[in-house]
Design a protein around this nucleic acid. Structure first.
Lengths: 175, 175
DNA sequence: GAGGATAAGTTCGTTGAATGAACCTACCTG
DNA sequence: CAGGTAGGTTCATTCAACGAACTTATCCTC
């Protein structure tokens, strides 16, 4: 979406943000990264994104310091993409967007976000009503909601059905 | 950005939200609507968006119930576009995005958002630290920050330099 | 009442990005 | 050494964005 030529003139931090994360697919890649997706192929099958576009987005996000590319094995050389602090700071945005989508569009509870320490469902600002604190991203537990399909087609979606914390790497069956 | 074909399979409220507001320019149109821009021509000069794209976005947002098209004078017939409740509910998303942009990209304070009742600058969740409440959108006052240019080229930007509340219609000099 | 201005579009040719299929390169396993 | 896997690149086609020109309806001014 974004393009320097156009948005750059805007003198607005929202426009600047959209320059970086406003393109098609970009926010979904970041969402997946929060859900623990880290590998090229997992993004690919989970999102159904064209390969060239994924490569371009991963490269852009890495060069913007939102994802970090890190070698997780030599021989064959394999890299994974992990959210940096700058990327993790996008959580409130994603949370607000998801909440709006749920309340004004889908009307379904597809995923539940809880405070891992106490099990309470998070408030709109990732606050824990029980503990009275804002919950840090790694302390958020994601569990499938009542309206989420139980038998998705792709292996990544299936792996994501297991309750787990945000950022915790997803374990995909090699099947 | 968004496209039913692709994102629809996602079973995710974030993806659904992006279907509706994820296309290029869309969020900037909504941002302008919060700032009080209501007319086709004002959007046009403020955003520098191609006319056809603006017409398409306004039509889409209206049909999604995010903007409402309302006649403000007969003869010549003139319409303005105003945020609905569903549109106003996007404020937390825009706020989160703007905050992220400021903290991680621009590093400048271009606009200050305050609680109109007490003048306190808003917290990250549009909360008022002084009053201890979440501030409703119409009670948010926008004033230019220290890093915002004082003499912008287009008349809409100039009109927006005056402190005003969110949603309150901007008054553009016919000059 | 003729000429010009304004608001809100539509039309259209050109450019640029997204798509999907095929191909490429290491390396590993049986 | 045949086949598979991960992570890409290349390329032809399709689709959206761009920007300039044109349209329509009305008002304002002389």
């Amino acid at each position: 979406m974004a393009l320097g030529k156009d948005y750059a003139t805007q003198e607005c931090s929202i426009a600047s943000a959209l320059e970086v994360i406003g393109e098609r697919w970009t926010l979904l890649v970041i969402r997946d990264a929060f859900y623990g997706v880290r590998r090229y192929n997992d993004f690919l099958v989970h999102l159904g994104i064209p390969r060239a576009v994924l490569a371009s987005r991963l490269q852009a996000l890495t060069s913007q310091g939102i994802l970090e590319k890190r070698r997780y094995q030599e021989s064959p050389p394999r890299d994974e993409y992990v959210l940096t602090d700058r990327g993790i700071a996008l959580w409130p945005t994603l949370r607000a967007l998801g909440l709006w989508g749920r309340e004004h569009l889908t009307g379904r509870q597809l995923r539940i976000f809880r405070h891992a320490a106490c099990g309470t469902e998070l408030g709109p600002y990732s606050d824990c009503p029980t503990c009275g604190t804002v919950v840090a991203v790694p302390d958020v537990e994601v569990v499938p909601g009542p309206d989420l399909g139980r038998d998705p087609a792709d292996p990544v979606s299936r792996a994501l059905l297991k309750p787990k914390r945000l950022l915790q790497p997803v374990e995909v069956d090699p099947a």
